[in-house]
Design a protein around this nucleic acid. Structure first.
Lengths: 190, 190
DNA sequence: GGCACTTTCCTAAGAGGTTTAGGATATAAC
DNA sequence: GTTATATCCTAAACCTCTTAGGAAAGTGCC
């Protein structure tokens, strides 16, 4: 019996691609094993459970997304940075729907603390440097941005905007413009 | 063998409660049957599949939420209406996490078109009557509000804000104030 | 090259979930 | 009371996830 060369790494990577193809929920160990031409039980030498597989896919996605965001906002500030951040986020979700869905997979606190999620939080806050908001307004704004990004992209991915004009891209651009204006004039800020 | 009195209605209702208790994903036909002291196969006289059960729970949740929103925004306008809408949405999600999760269960287009989802869209648009925005800005604003509500509540439910000050309630209030200000001065509006 | 050791992938099997088919009976209708 | 319907049952097929233990491919050392 020839060995296929399974690895935790390879399984997670293939799992992420599988998720993009057929959906994160459907990216099961059983299906993954089928893709590798291997029995399901064989995966358990590399991954301890379906939960671990999902968690690792989520961590991979968070990492990839954080890398792309970091590259996009480097050297930008203010509205430029805001738009670059937002577009990377949305483009990633549209290009990799399964991985993006994985991003929302609930992580236990320690795992979350060690994940790229904290980079996301830091980078979101970095965006606001261009808008000098005092605390606690800054935290409120961070939460608003996170909500809009994740909410808009989530709704779009779920088909929420598919049956109505205008194009989601147009609303996206307009909304980012509005957010920029809002951040510049946040009520209660100095 | 005494009959329990199963009904599609009762199953869906109990399924919704079950979802709130143990999570929407975990609210399976098997668990539901256990609650009723009945064999799993017996549910299939009332519900054609696990998918249909989930779909009906989702429709129930959308309906309940729409009813509560309708009651809350009746007789209110402007910021009052905005805050009432938003609070109903968030309170429902916190009180009924399983049903709220069901709200995001993907519906096929015809089902979605016949669901209370369209009432949500209409009511969101109604909120904006107090802010006279011209089209297409109005649609952009509708999408922004939907994104913020669903995004914020989704992140909060996922524990996104649980490890940082300040209290989510405070950010929520502040964000609603900011959105109100934004809607009153939407860039590009007359 | 031969040997021991490790790792990989296997078969086998159990626990649960979903679904279909067909049967017994409690309830309702006449 | 008899008939008909709807409800709930058993039985069984087919999933998925997971554990346990075995065979053989690969690795390292003499």
């Amino acid at each position: 019996m020839a060995r296929v060369g399974l690895t935790t790494e390879r399984l997670v990577r293939a799992g992420a691609e599988l998720a993009d193809e057929i959906g994160f929920e459907q990216a099961t160990p059983a299906e993954l094993a089928r893709r590798f031409g291997v029995r399901t039980a064989s995966l358990y030498s590399h991954v301890s459970s379906a939960h671990e597989l999902r968690t690792r896919i989520a961590l991979l996605a968070l990492e990839e997304l954080a890398d792309q965001v970091a590259a996009a906002i480097a050297g930008r500030a203010g509205k430029d940075a805001l738009i670059a951040f937002a577009n990377v986020y949305r483009d990633y979700a549209l290009a990799h729907p399964g991985r993006f869905a994985a991003t929302k997979y609930p992580l236990d606190p320690e795992t979350a603390a060690a994940s790229a999620g904290v980079r996301h939080a830091r980078m979101t806050r970095a965006i606001l440097r261009g808008y000098d908001l005092p605390e606690p307004q800054q935290t409120h704004a961070v939460r608003l941005l996170g909500s809009v990004f994740s909410g808009y992209v989530g709704l779009e991915a779920a088909g929420g905007f598919s049956h109505s004009a205008p194009d989601p891209q147009e609303s996206w651009t307009e909304i980012l413009g509005a957010l920029d204006a809002l951040l510049r004039t946040w009520p209660g800020a100095s």
